[in-house]
Nucleic acid binder design. Structure first.
Lengths: 65, 65
DNA sequence: CCAGAAAGTAAAGTAAACTTAACTTTACGT
DNA sequence: ACGTAAAGTTAAGTTTACTTTACTTTCTGG
């Protein structure tokens, strides 16, 4: 699962810290998501879509393996 | 998080067992999702959208609390 | 160059998603 | 009424998302 959180975050002029705060998650979570160390829960995905004002599919690129 | 997996599954004429098989998850997972006992991973959400041939937002209704 | 902010790493712990298994209940055709 | 398929329950175990803390590295402005 690829994502472009880092780009979107930059576009919205947010630090990892600020984004974490908006999402009510830890900064660690943002770092790990950006580094694609794990996949978000669907709730986090929805929240990200809300904050970035776009669709989940625009943030996360699902490639079936 | 609400979802209409049960309806969509019926529409596609699938048993819980068959859907579980298509998704490579256990039947328990389908039951629990339909009963909204927990939320799916984003991967499962994508897979469901693929199988039901619709958008994630058409399956899962996110209500921020 | 250096201070501070932002980004990253590592590790140990908690919470929630998902599995496995064994059993019960409901719906439905014969 | 009975058999069987589908749906549901419970519980214990594994995996993975997410937290917390403490520390290091990179980036940027003065």
């Amino acid at each position: 699962m690829k994502n472009n959180i880092k780009n979107l975050r930059a576009k919205h002029d947010l630090t990892q810290d600020k984004l974490a705060e908006l999402l009510n998650v830890s900064r660690q979570t943002i770092i790990s998501l950006e580094k694609e160390r794990y996949n978000p829960s669907i709730i986090l995905a929805f929240e990200l879509a809300r904050i970035f004002n776009c669709r989940i599919e625009e943030i996360f690129i699902y490639q079936e393996e």
